[in-house]
């Protein structure tokens, strides 16, 4: 059940290349499950709210991690403590968490966001995290995961931190010798597609991204091509999809 409500900004701070925005919104925080998102708006311009994965939940406060790249994110990055925003959430189909031991999470850049709460839920299952970024400025809050994961493998494209190259390379090496119960991934579409290929017959739970207007299923603007049912809504039928549902060749 999603709530449309006001929330109060409790913190806005830069985290390397990203912004971490915290908002008090108790009802959403109570019901949120890992992988779900919320729509946030802070005025009438830009017109449409913006969707963000819920990263942390702590005593009624939701935190979001995003990059200041446009009108919507710029407006949110300029919020101050005490400002009021409108929220709609929690939205979307969450990750499944009833899984076996040593599940794998693969994050690319700000795709790390949904894994904070997921890692917390999976901590008894010794999860592994593969975490890649273009540079070290995209690798954040690794200390949080150190406490909850059995292993963390980091990569950067420039080699500034961890393995040099794409995160899908160490991930592929790991999959060559291990069979995790499930692979969770969130990041750019090219990375997700590669993860789905490498995964083979291992089940995947991929958190997809799309431009959205409403976030709750009514505009049908955020669709991705899937095999079984044609175009499906990222907001309501996802954002979590199994890799074998998606028609990658038709996805831009």
């Amino acid at each position: 059940m999603a709530h449309y409500m006001r929330g109060m900004v409790t913190a806005v701070r830069p985290v390397k290349e990203y912004v971490r925005l915290s908002i008090k919104a108790e009802r959403i925080a109570e019901e949120m499950q890992p992988g779900q998102f919320a729509m946030i708006s802070a005025g009438t311009e830009p017109l449409l709210p913006r969707p963000f994965s819920i990263a942390h939940v702590d005593r009624g406060v939701l935190s979001f991690i995003f990059q200041d790249v446009g009108r919507g994110t710029g407006m949110l990055a300029s919020l101050r403590v005490g400002d009021s925003v409108r929220l709609l959430g929690p939205l979307g189909k969450p990750f499944r968490v009833d899984v076996g031991d040593r599940p794998v999470m693969v994050a690319g850049g700000r795709g790390i966001a949904p894994f904070f709460e997921l890692a917390r839920r999976l901590s008894g299952r010794s999860p592994l995290l593969f975490y890649g970024g273009r540079t070290q400025a995209q690798i954040i809050e690794t200390g949080f995961f150190v406490r909850l994961c059995s292993e963390i493998i980091v990569s950067t494209e420039d080699g500034g931190m961890g393995h040099k190259g794409f995160i899908t390379e160490p991930f592929a090496e790991y999959l060559a010798k291990s069979t995790p119960p499930v692979i969770y991934a969130c990041g750019p579409h090219a990375m997700l597609r590669r993860v789905a290929e490498i995964a083979g017959s291992v089940p995947t739970e991929l958190s997809m991204e799309a431009r959205m207007a409403c976030g709750y299923g009514i505009c049908i603007g955020c669709v991705i091509p899937t095999g079984r049912e044609g175009y499906r809504r990222v907001c309501l039928d996802g954002p979590v999809f199994s890799g074998d549902e998606i028609r990658w060749q038709d996805l831009k």
Binding site: E45, P46, L47, L48, R71, A210, R211, M212, A213, C219, I220, G221, C222, V223, I224, P225, G230, Y231, D250, K252
Partner: peptide, 16 residues
């Protein structure tokens, strides 16, 4: 329906 992208926000409006 049409392939994505299907929507784009414009000043005080949106294209679909």
């Amino acid at each position: 329906g049409n392939p994505p992208p299907r929507i784009w926000e414009t000043p005080s409006g949106m294209l679909n």
